[in-house]
Structures are given as C-alpha cells and as structure tokens.
Design a protein around this nucleic acid. Sequence first.
DNA 1: CTGAAAGCGCTAACAA
DNA 2: TTGTTAGCGCTTTCAG
Lengths: 333, 333
Amino acid sequence: MATINDVARLANVSVATVSRVIGNTNRVKPETRSRVIEAIKTLNYQPNILARQLRRKETKSIIVVVPGITNSFFSNVLLGIETIASKYEYQVLLGDTQNDQSKGYAYLDLLKQKQVDGVISLTARMKREYLEEISNQYPVVLACEYLEGSNVPTVAIDNIRCAEKLTQHLINLRHKRIAFLSGPMEIILNRDRLKGFYNSMIIHGMEVDSSLVAEGDFTMESGYQLTKKLLTLERPPTAIFAANDEMAIGSIKAIKCIGWKVPKDVAVVGFDDIKMASIFEPSLTTIAQPASLIGIRAMETLLDLMNQESYVRRSTILKGDLVIRESCGATMI
Amino acid sequence: MATINDVARLANVSVATVSRVIGNTNRVKPETRSRVIEAIKTLNYQPNILARQLRRKETKSIIVVVPGITNSFFSNVLLGIETIASKYEYQVLLGDTQNDQSKGYAYLDLLKQKQVDGVISLTARMKREYLEEISNQYPVVLACEYLEGSNVPTVAIDNIRCAEKLTQHLINLRHKRIAFLSGPMEIILNRDRLKGFYNSMIIHGMEVDSSLVAEGDFTMESGYQLTKKLLTLERPPTAIFAANDEMAIGSIKAIKCIGWKVPKDVAVVGFDDIKMASIFEPSLTTIAQPASLIGIRAMETLLDLMNQESYVRRSTILKGDLVIRESCGATMI
DNA sequence: CTGAAAGCGCTAACAA
DNA sequence: TTGTTAGCGCTTTCAG
C-alpha cells in the first residue's frame, strides 16, 4: 500500500507538498501539482484516513443511533440527515440498537473514543444521567424521541397536539367510546400521545373509561391481543386509537378475526404513517411525521453543535399531519 | 481529554504499562495494575481508538453495504452478521446506497482508506471490474446477490431452484397460463428467477406465452401497473409469479382493483418473504430466504478472508423454503 | 511556493 | 515486570 512518502519520493517533492495537493488547501505551482497528481495515479495512492483523522482530531463522520432499522419511518429520517451531512462532507454511520439499550451506550462511546464527531439518536431509551452527561461533553442531538425536562437538543413533533388532533377527528366522527392502545408507559412519546388523547376527550366533556386504556409494547402482536380483549367487553369501543401504526394494524387484524368490519363496526387510527399504513387494507388513518424534515433539522442542529465552542442548545418542534384514509370511516360519510 | 500519557504520569508508570493494562495482554503486577486502573478512573480516560487503529493497522470493523435499509429482509441478514461479528469483537457499520450505485463505490473506498477491514455487500449492482479489482486486494464478500462467473466469495440461495420450486407449486395447482412479473433484467437475481420459471414450465411441457412475461423494477407500483395490463389481455393469466414480494403485493392490489379475487380468480406468488408478506391480506405464498443464516455465513466467510493471507475464496449456496399461504389458493383446496 | 520537522495517541519490539 | 523508544501516515507550523 502506497503512502504519502512513496508519492513524495516519486514526484520528487516533500510530503508536505503532497499533502497540499491532496487537500488543495495551499497554493502549489501547477507544474509540481501535476507531477504529484501523476505520482498519485501511478501508485494508485489513497490517503490513510485514519492517520488524517488522528492528526486533525476530527473524523468528519457522525453516527445515527436507530432503535430498529426495519422501521421505514427511520429510513426517511435518515434520508434527511444524509442530505445535509453529504452537503457538508460528513460521513453518516448507522448504529442499530435493535431495541437493546446497552447497544446504544456502545454507540455513544464512539464519541469518547474519537471515532465520530457527533451523534444523532433516534431513541432516548437510555439512562437519563448518562445521556445528559455525554451531551454535556460532546455534540449529541435527539430526534423523534426526547428526554423530559432536559436540555439535550431535540428535534421532534409535538406528540401531544398531534394526538389531540387525531382524537378530535374521531370525536367529530361521533365516536363516544374510544379506546387507547398504549405503547410502553416508560416511553415519553407514548405518554404524550396518551396525554393528547385525554386532553381532547376532556375538552369535549367525554369520559375516558379506564377499562378502554390498555398498555402494549408497540408491536403488532400486542395490538392484536389487546384488541381481542377489548372486543369481549360488555360495551366494546366504537373506535380505537393505537399509539402507533404497528399496533393499529394488529388491532385491525383482531377485529377482522372475529368477523367485524373496519371501519364500519369499529374505527381504528394509528400514528407515524409507516409505509404499511397506506398499503394495508383498509388503509390507515394516522399522523404523518415529517420524517425527512426531522432528519434535516437534526443534522443542522448537530452541525451547529460541532462547529461552535459555545454550545447553543436549541430544540425544534415540528408539526405532524393528520392523514385521513379508510380505517377511520371518514371517507364513508 | 485525557491521553495515555496523563494516565501514565498519574499512576507513576510508563505509557507501555498503561497500554498493557488496557489491552491486558502482558502480565502486569496486580499492584501496579490497580494503580493504573485507579488513574484511568479518576481521569475518566478512554483510549483514542483512531490512534490504536493507525498503529495496529486494523480497525476491527467492517461495513455492510445495503441497497435499502427499509427492506426488512436485509435487517435479518444484518442480524446474522452482527451475531458473528460481535462474537469476534468486530464493529459493524452500515452503509445504505439507497439504490444509488455511486454510493456503493464510496463505501468500498473505505477499505482503501483503511477505515474498515472488510465489507459485506448485499448488492452487486456495481461495475464488475471495480468489484473484482477491489475483491482481489481486500476482504469482500457478496451476500444475496452475486456476480456472474466471478470468483468474489458469495453467500446466497439458489434462486433458480427456488423459482423452479415455486413454479412447480403453481403447476401442481393446475395453472396453465402463468405470467411472470420480472424485475430489472440487468439484475442477475431476477434473471435467475426467470430462468427457474422457464425451466419448470418447459419440464412440464408447458408453453410460456411471451406476452405474459413483463419487466418491471421490483417496486409495488410496477407490479400494479404491469398487472393492470395483463388483466386486459384477451386471455388473462390464471396465476402470476412476481419476482419479488413487493411486486406481488402491487399485483394483488391491481387485481382487487378491477373487482377480481385473489386467489379465486388469479393466484399470485412472490419471492423473499418480507415482513409484509405475512401481514398483507391475502397473505403471500412466497420463497423465504434464510436471511439470518445468510448473514452468519457471510460474516464467517469474511472473517476467513480477513484472517488469512491466502485468500481462500469460497462461496456458499443455501436453500430457500417455499412458504405456502393464502395468495396461491393451495389452502382453499 | 516548498521543505524540514514536530507530533496526533497509541502499540510493540527490545532492553533492562 | 516494567521502561525506552521507534514509528503508524498524515497535517501543519515555521523557515526559507
């Protein structure tokens, strides 16, 4: 493997000069420059990035921590991140935690080990103290999920307002008995969605039957099981608000399973607008997050953090859109 | 940021000793060791991995190039890769090309730049010469897709045989007019599936009506459009073999769209067994690739390549399984 | 415009 | 068991 020394020797210049033409930072006489380029070509030279990074003390790369790459929602966020990152010549690494907390810590450690300059985490499911400590020393931004009452820079939608909007929609459709299929209560996103649900109900003077609020784990399977139970109630719900699309689909499956129709017998709405939401039948009424924009804003925030000593911590709240499809029954009217 | 020097000074030892306790390679007197550990703790020291990698000339990390992370099939392959990688303490990076060739090259360049020790590519959609050249100099293994007639180590299923099996299944179900919804012809995987289709048809002395073979691009949309056209034929097909699940789902949507039923009026089968295949209604009969096993074998092969000077190039062919669900009509019988 | 030289933080001979 | 020291390959002053 050719090194910068080999190139220098062949081109009859010093390594400094070679370095200059590589980074075309300083002016080099056109003649020498072409001699160097020639040498680079004949030797098939590629600079060792590791050495450069060590010397420069920056890697020009960031890592995005994702709780599960399967989720198409995240890939759109990623798209937004990459758009901005590539514009500023940052490399984007991907770390999948597969919902395993400990893996998340390992990715954050890359910061300490100087393997990345910053991280964007699409999950906040880590020990609060740890996340905050790291965030005080290194550039970290949270996207989609956030840490309650902390000042870690965050980009997310307003889950409370979105849930209110969605609940409102169901209420407008004359539903009185609305169930809420919750995700894990320790996840703030989920608590926000539940809160929005309550807010809307209360505003309209509607009672929330606590037997209609069931906690699952964001999986299709849990949506299915929970719904099965709800349907055996003496007074089953006429509408179901699932805390995410996966659960909503599981829910619809359960409803179909006992021979009922969606949305005729029970309306169902989800949250996130994953790819399957539009493909599944009936298609899902849900809240679409501006995924790609979230990514863009997150990366911009991270760039700020990385480029200035004074950590200006700022967070961004974006709005989500109500997407009306078949599962809520609005289109039947 | 504390360096190894700071630790050494604080612990009153040489940097070599600190290095020894970090890598706990050489024996260090328990007493000194604990003194060093103490120092590491108080300084909150983390070794600079970049420096280590530069010195050792290895990064202990590999990159997996994926054509699109959204595809759940890939995340299972990834799971297999990570299982083995973590056992051997390799870090796994993820590079998403989003079906953009040029991005693939950029990831391969990480090898030359010494940023990764090896790559597993889940796509072979790159210039053949380039891929082969790289593979001659660095550890590269192809998984799922392969390069025709090349000796780049590969782990994949036998697409031809699987397609034969699937076609056979349709023939057993008494179908005579079977259409083939093809992906892009330049993709070898697709050509293999088509070949398997022809093989089975010919073996059973069945004619392949060339007007029933249509080329799309592996997307749901193309499956939809192509099927729409097929259904307007004077003698529409009674069964459709889609080259992948996405197209199969698009196809079913088109069939439902004109009011026909699947599988009653037209049977449809796909290929890959993506997550949606089991969730969609009707659920899809398809070929399930042993995704996680492919990942495991690929990583094992890569480890071999990385650990021995003599590149023993070996490829592995695994078998895919026919998964019979609703869309083919077999369960109705 | 170019070169000499220091050094990023670490590991691994080699010596003691 | 421990220390000394020479680099890994590059960038970046500082001189010239």
